[in-house]
Computed example of a mutant assay.
Amino acid sequence: MKVRVKWIEGTAMLGESSSGHALVMDGPPEAGGRNLGPRPMEMLLLGMGGCTQFDVMLILRKARQAVTDCVVELSAERSISDPKVFTKIHAHFIISGRDLSEARVARAVELSATKYCSASIMLGATATITHDYELREVAS
């Protein structure tokens, strides 16, 4: 995997992925940014959210769960001194569907956290990562 990050101006930069996608990142206004895009550390957290949601949804599809929606809300704390690494991350899954098996959802979240989500496992080297979920039943 390769990516390219090109400086635009100030603290703005253009990230380009090897899969052909691009996005603007920027620093906060207090550091000279113009708030043109997410901060690089926000991108790391978004990447973890996408990675773990991908795993959970794949596992639940294979388990033939009738999922109609899946949202992952992540909250994180960072060290107050440099390097300001993540020290705590919590992922809260909100999974909606019909006749969902709580055991299968719990297992999917656990498998993502402990076996499949490369981003979670990598960030777990500096952060304590916790996960929970809630199920929302959707009428048939």
Rank of each mutant, 00 (worst) to 15 (best):
I8M: 12
E9G: 13
T11D: 03
A12R: 14
A12G: 12
L14Y: 06
E16I: 07
S19Q: 07
G20Q: 04
H21Y: 08
V24W: 11
G27Y: 07
G27H: 05
P29L: 07
P29T: 03
E30P: 10
G32E: 13
R39E: 07
M41N: 06
M41L: 06
M41F: 04
G47P: 05
G47L: 15
G49T: 02
F54R: 15
F54H: 08
D55K: 06
M57L: 14
I59R: 05
L60I: 01
R61Y: 04
R64N: 09
A66N: 07
V67L: 12
V67T: 05
T68G: 05
C70Q: 10
V72A: 02
V72N: 00
E73K: 13
A76W: 04
R78P: 01
R78Q: 09
R78E: 06
S79P: 03
S79K: 12
I80H: 09
V85W: 04
K88A: 13
A91H: 03
A91T: 03
H92F: 06
H92P: 05
F93Q: 01
F93M: 07
I94P: 12
G97C: 02
R98L: 00
A103C: 04
R107G: 02
R107C: 09
E110P: 08
E110C: 13
S112V: 09
A113Y: 07
A113E: 12
T114V: 04
C117W: 13
S118E: 15
S118A: 09
A119L: 06
